[in-house]
Design a protein around this nucleic acid. Structure first.
Lengths: 220, 220
DNA sequence: GACCAATTGAACTATCCAGTACAATTGGAA
DNA sequence: TTCCAATTGTACTGGATAGTTCAATTGGTC
């Protein structure tokens, strides 16, 4: 028989502590991302997230309101990150061909290096992007990616390297598809073909193939 | 106050009825597919599936054992269908270029016409293809798709239409990626770019782009 | 050092939900 | 007709789970 813990001698952290709301938020968000990415929105358990946090479940509700609020915060953070990544690209200095190759390579790497992001986008698409739609922090923004491509494409047209009649969105979709699919469908590809796309050699081969495919699509 | 229905005067279908286990199975499977596709494995509710069936929840457990068994059956049926589709393709009669173009077009159309299949594969990948792995009915089979591509590719090499050094799996992955992504990420694409990939014109443009991209990848 | 607002903890609740018990009914074989 | 095995319906259960209650503690401000 284990005696019940003293009910009144509790309520004590290690001596003294400092308030660190941002730290708590970050901690919860990181744990929550891992859970949502692993189990989806319906599959994730608030109790499980709370247990893996250094705080209690109460804090989750205090900071994020409810499970969906927490999920939305995770989603917003993930989109903020990839936006920051896109902004960090500077293609203007490169000649068109190299610019497209670089963009494709970086996009491919971002997806391969951030399977969490890919899986979160999958989860969100299963939910028909309902939370993307209602989030005020997201929306608008991603047009910068298209603008970047448009700029490079027009330079490529001007110097005769690229062929006419392409739509920047179409180029973007092709780059995204070739970057996304290997990661999103990694598990079923492994089951069906026995290929581990996460293995360094397979990944590198696929990366080269993606870049070459996009170049062949765009160039004359 | 509503009086309770008579407890002993129940148990009656319309006069007489015939046993139709296969019909019941099909009915349940169709409803279950819709539910799993819409809400994922964790999000789907057995009670909801039962309610939309013309039978009771009891039948689901009678025929499929448990929720996972039902999900596995749905998954197996979906894979059986796409296998049948692949077998129905006859590329041997076509010259290599046309064969690849046809394969890409048909694959694109299959995905666009069967978003349920695409979403089911997404759900399964979120679960790390665990059910694909344990299902005895699936596995093996999909190598035929690769063999088909290999055959066409070798003919294309022989008659000089295709360039050397490509891997049939790589070709397959490219075709799949370009067919899958527009459907799997339809919702987030619409949110972020305002483009509805399911609209006939957008779909047709993307289809042509996919075929051209694959041809440019493969041809000399 | 007192007070207030922000922050935190533990136990609790109401609901949902997968799965079951058990009896009843039926089709078909003998 | 009788009987058994295959089906089917109703009501129920036990556990999981999102979210709440309420009191307590703390940091910072005056």
């Amino acid at each position: 028989m284990v005696t019940a813990p003293p009910l009144l001698a509790k309520r004590r952290k290690s001596a003294s502590w400092t308030q660190d709301p941002e730290g708590v938020r970050r901690d919860i968000l990181a744990v929550a991302r891992a859970e949502f990415v692993e189990n989806g929105l319906s599959g994730a358990r608030v109790d499980e997230i709370a247990a893996k946090t250094s705080n209690s479940k109460r804090m989750i509700y205090y900071y994020f309101g409810d499970k969906e609020g927490l999920y939305r915060a995770v989603l917003e953070e993930a989109y903020a990150r990839i936006r920051a990544f896109e902004r960090s690209l500077d293609l203007a200095a490169l000649p068109p061909r190299e610019a497209i190759a670089t963009l494709t390579g970086f996009t491919f790497d971002y997806h391969a290096d951030n399977p969490d992001f890919v899986r979160l986008v999958m989860v969100e698409n299963i939910h028909h992007a309902r939370h993307l739609a209602t989030s005020t922090k997201i929306s608008v923004l991603n047009l910068s990616a298209i603008d970047m491509i448009r700029e490079v494409y027009e330079r490529g047209l001007a110097d005769g390297a690229f062929r006419e009649g392409l739509d920047p969105i179409d180029i973007h979709l092709t780059i995204s598809a070739l970057s996304f699919y290997n990661v999103s469908n990694q598990a079923s590809i492994r089951q069906v073909f026995g290929h581990d796309m996460a293995a360094p050699e397979a990944r590198e081969r696929r990366r080269r193939s993606a870049i070459e495919t996009v170049l062949r699509m765009v160039c004359r």
